[in-house]
Design a binder for these strands. Structure first.
Length: 117
DNA sequence: ACTTTGACTATAA
DNA sequence: GTTATAGCCAAAG
């Protein structure tokens, strides 16, 4: 699945969305982990940009399960309401303290480990 | 075609 | 533990 050969530009975005959709409920991952899985380890910011663009997608993407590597809800401001992201995560059993995921390591879902073949 | 921007990260102090 | 700095790279302006 990690396809470094992006013949179409939008394929990179597509890959990102695919991975995000594979994140199980109650689990979270980081932008960098997704980038690493896609073979673009240093493109974490681009992954974030892809999330920002995820609005224009027809199929919904659970972007609330993607946070930065500290477990901080950096993208909450981009949701319909700033509290939306936290609410969604809490509804999946994840606790949040001051915009930060409690016991982040325990909830972390690494696509490189979980999706490797 | 060039410059700016950003839902990031690693490193240094 | 913290803050500051510098790489990073694709999309937007």
């Amino acid at each position: 699945m990690p396809n470094k050969n992006y013949s179409n530009q939008s394929d990179f975005f597509e890959q990102v969305y695919q991975v995000v959709k594979l994140i199980p409920e109650g689990r979270v991952t980081s932008y960098g982990a997704i980038g690493a899985f896609l073979g673009a380890a240093r493109s974490a910011r681009v992954v974030g940009w892809a999330m920002n663009n995820a609005h224009s997608l027809s199929s919904p993407v659970p972007a609330h399960r993607v946070v930065n590597r500290n477990g901080l809800l950096t993208g909450k401001a981009h949701f319909s309401t700033p509290s939306r992201m936290q609410e969604l995560l809490e509804s999946e059993g994840i606790k949040i303290d001051t915009d930060k995921i409690v016991d982040f390591k325990h909830h972390f879902w690494d696509p490189v480990e979980e999706l490797k073949l």
